[in-house]
Each structure stands twice: as structure tokens, then as C-alpha cells.
Design a protein around this nucleic acid. Structure first.
Lengths: 249, 249
DNA sequence: AAAAAACTGAGTACGACGTACTCACTTTCT
DNA sequence: AGAAAGTGAGTACGTCGTACTCAGTTTTTT
């Protein structure tokens, strides 16, 4: 019961016995390298062990399940969200915007991250640093901790949601092996068959205006992020007013 | 090349031969029933076939891969987002808010939906109806189709992101087999060990204020959604102004 | 310095998975 | 009526996560 059932509380190195051949960090690095190069599904315990020059089952000395490998990967890479200079912008809006963009850049650099992180609670040291940093930006606003958490939670919900849908599209394209034009044409011909029923006037307009993709995906990301931050800022009390996150709804 | 490589364009029933014992819809229903009761990972082709009273490989007459089963599930359930009355609120903000809440309700009713939908582009008939409905709500605003898509994309990004993080927490709790209190205590003791380093003043404050969970998760969802809709509405041109989604950033 | 305790990494094995392939059979079109 | 084209069942293969065993090594204790 007092045992260390949590990855992050379990000591990396036991009190006695020979020193391990590698470390959790090395394990995470190796896994990240595989996932970056060949995608998440290329990671198997056998493959990972082979890359590390270890026996497959030896990995279970460092980690109790494959899932914990994923935990290590996520927490390691989440560290990249954090700006390198200790003191980010004073303005909290600029601070959160910066964090959001860093998150976006990181998730695009490691396309496996967004789906993986979305499916598990963030619990490692780097996630803690991230939370600490985000809350620190809101310190001067005079909100309760719960209000702050709600606020940054909303921003990260948007960021994760947006990037995931963006990546899902890219992934589907990659897996289909088609060119973008081919895929669009295929999708379009299905849409056309729906339009033929006469029940989809907006989709019909969509195929006619045909611009598509004229606004880059960076701009789309910025649009939603900026609107959300605008809305949050507008809803904050000018000074000690009654309009904090708690009183919404 | 003119072949039907897409699930939705492939005719369900071929021109000749005996009639199938069941339908794609029945397949989707069976899969949804399993996932609702036992989770996504309980779905295997063998299990699905057994539930349908069919041979395992017979499923591949209806679907070319397991992934297409997931496509069917997602599109089927996405249908539940749509309000049953043809004419939703006139106000576009109320319309989108309603859609967002319907999505939330559906995703909570089918906890496997959010992670699954996030990982694949929406391409089926019900997704098309959803897009049609959402765009229809914005018709009177005088935006271009791309601007509309950006707008509703932002809202759905938030909705998906929020619900996924909410479900991830619940899932982790379920899988750990602990009570909420136990899990919180465990998490807390890790946080405490970090705080002991003195580098986490905000987290320290967090443990002290200790309220936690005083704001329900429905309220948190509403907070971000309402702020986002506020921000979008505020950024719209009063009438033909220069401030549409396109000119952001 | 010696003995005991504890951890190491490699190997083997198991059950479950997605799905390719084969084949006797049934339905529908000509 | 015959032929074409579909049907569902069965078997088989390769891969996965991981439980278990065991000889060997390292560290702590006496």
C-alpha cells in the first residue's frame, strides 16, 4: 500500500544491486526517436529493446508496462513547451499565447504527441513545470487557483483539439498514399453525390466557392486562439469585479 | 482508379449475388454496443463477428479493415449531435452553443467517441449533415465559406479538446481501480515531493487552497465555450467590416 | 574478507490480435 | 438452365504485450 505504484514516485534506481545499463531517460529518447521517424505504431517493446541493445523483457526493469513508456515520452516532450528564458512576457495574454504556440510547434515536430497526450492525464515532472509556469503567468490577476486552472484548461483544450484535427487530416492523407489533389477529388466526388439529393445547400456553396485552403492552417489556429483569449480577457473583472470564471453560466 | 476505394462511396450492396445476412448499420450498432459496455479495446474482429453470429472473416465482406469499423461507429454516433427539430435557434451563437452541448452529451454517453473521432477526419454522411447544419447557422452573417469553416472549426476544436481531457482523467481513474480520493492522495503526495524543492510556488498554493473540484466539469466546459463564442462574436464585423476571421493575425 | 541479499538481462512461452487465403455453396442475371 | 459473382466458414501466419524462469553479477552486511 505504501509501495510506489506510480511511475513518477518509483525511484529510478533501487537501493541495491548492479547499476542499470541505461536509464528511463535513455529509454524515452529511444522511443521518441522511433516515433518521430516511423510513427507511434512502430514502437513495440521488442523494437525498442533492440534499439537499446537490450533484451526485450529487460525493459520491464525500467517500466511496468508499455503504457509507461508512453508516459515517459509524453512528459519528456512536454518539456519543450516551456520557453527557455525563465521570465516570459509580463502580460498574461502574451504569456499564454506564447505557450500555446510553443505547444503547437512541439506537437507538429512530434506528430504522435497530440493523440498520445490527449488520452492520458499529465502527471510527470515536466507537466508539473508547465502547470506551474502557466499559473505563474496569471498570478497577478487575483483569481483563485481553481479559476486559473479553468482558464488555462480552456486554452489548452482548444490547442489540443485544434492540432489533433489538423494532424488527423495529415495522417489520413499520408496513410492513403494519395496526393492532396487526389484525395480532395475523391472527397469531392462523394460530396457531390450528397449534393445531388438537394439537401445540402451549404455544401453545394462550398464546392462552388472552391477557394479551400486559402487561409493557412497557422492562421486558422491563430484565429481561434486569439478569439478565445479575447473572450477570456473581456470576461475578467476590471478589478475585483464579480465576473471571474466561476460565475460563468 | 474509378474503383470505390472510399468506404462511403462503395455501394453497400453489390449488384449481384445473395443478400448479405446483415448490414453495415447492424455492424456499427453491434460495435457501438460493445464499446459502450466494455470500452473500445474490447472490440476485436472475432468478438464483433461472434456478437453478430457470423464468421470472423465474413466481416470483411462489409468492411475492408477494422479501421473502417471505427469509421462506421463514429459517423453513426455523430448523428446524435444533430438536434431533432429541423429548425434550431435563429441566433447563430445559440445554434453553435446547442451543437456544442449536444456533442458533449453524446461524447459522455459514448466515452470512446472523442478519442476515436479526434484521430480521423470526419467523412461520412452524418458528418456531412453536421457540417451542413453548422454552416447553415452562419448563413446570414455574410461570411465566406472558408471563414465559416474556420469559425466552426475553432468551436469544435475546443469542444473535442475539452472533453478528451475530461475523459482521459476519468479513464485513468477507472483503469487504476482506485477511488477518486485515493488517486488524488497519490497524485498529491507526488506534488508534495516536487514542492519540497521550493521551485513550485503556484503548485504549493494549489495544495493549500485545496478547494479542487468546487466548480463542476459542466461549468468548466461552459466557461471556455462561452468565452470562445464571446470572442468570436466580438470579432465579427458589425456589418461588412474588415474584421472577419480571415483578417485575424 | 566472506557471505548473503538483491537485482540484472536473456530466453522461452502463451494467448490474442488483424487479416490473407482457400473453398464449397447460394443467389441473381443472361 | 447455365454461368457469373457473390456468400460465410475455416485455417494459418506473423506480431504483439507480457508472465515466468534462471544463471550470473553487484552491492550491502557481517
Amino acid at each position: 500500500m505504501t509501495g510506489h505504484e506510480n511511475l513518477w514516485m518509483r525511484p529510478e534506481r533501487p537501493a541495491r544491486g548492479p547499476r542499470p545499463s541505461f536509464s528511463r531517460a535513455a529509454l524515452a529518447q529511444a522511443a521518441i526517436r522511433i516515433a518521430d521517424a516511423e510513427g507511434l505504431e512502430a514502437i513495440s517493446m521488442r523494437r525498442l529493446a533492440a534499439d537499446l541493445g537490450a533484451g526485450t523483457m529487460s525493459l520491464y526493469r525500467y517500466v511496468t508496462s508499455k503504457d509507461e513508456v508512453f508516459d515517459l515520452m509524453v512528459d519528456t516532450v512536454v518539456g519543450e513547451y516551456l520557453p527557455e528564458d525563465r521570465r516570459p512576457p509580463d502580460d498574461w495574454v502574451e504569456g499564454l499565447r506564447l505557450l500555446a504556440w510553443q505547444a503547437r510547434r512541439t506537437m507538429l515536430r512530434h506528430p504522435w504527441l497530440a493523440p498520445l497526450a490527449a488520452g492520458r492525464p499529465q502527471a510527470g515532472p515536466n507537466s508539473a513545470r508547465l502547470t506551474e509556469t502557466a499559473l505563474g503567468m496569471l498570478d497577478a490577476l487575483g483569481l483563485s487557483v481553481d479559476e486559473m486552472l479553468t482558464l488555462v484548461g480552456a486554452v489548452f483544450a482548444y490547442v489540443n483539439g485544434y492540432i489533433q484535427s489538423e494532424l488527423a487530416e495529415a495522417e489520413a492523407l499520408r496513410r492513403s498514399g494519395l496526393t492532396l489533389a487526389q484525395r480532395l477529388a475523391q472527397h469531392l466526388s462523394y460530396i457531390q453525390s450528397l449534393i445531388a439529393t438537394g439537401n445540402y445547400p451549404m455544401l453545394e456553396r462550398m464546392t462552388k466557392e472552391g477557394g479551400r485552403e486559402y487561409m493557412g492552417t497557422d492562421d486558422r489556429f491563430a484565429y481561434g486562439l486569439d478569439r478565445l483569449l479575447d473572450g477570456i480577457a473581456a470576461g475578467l473583472p476590471p478589478r475585483g469585479g464579480p465576473e471571474g470564471p466561476a460565475s460563468s453560466r
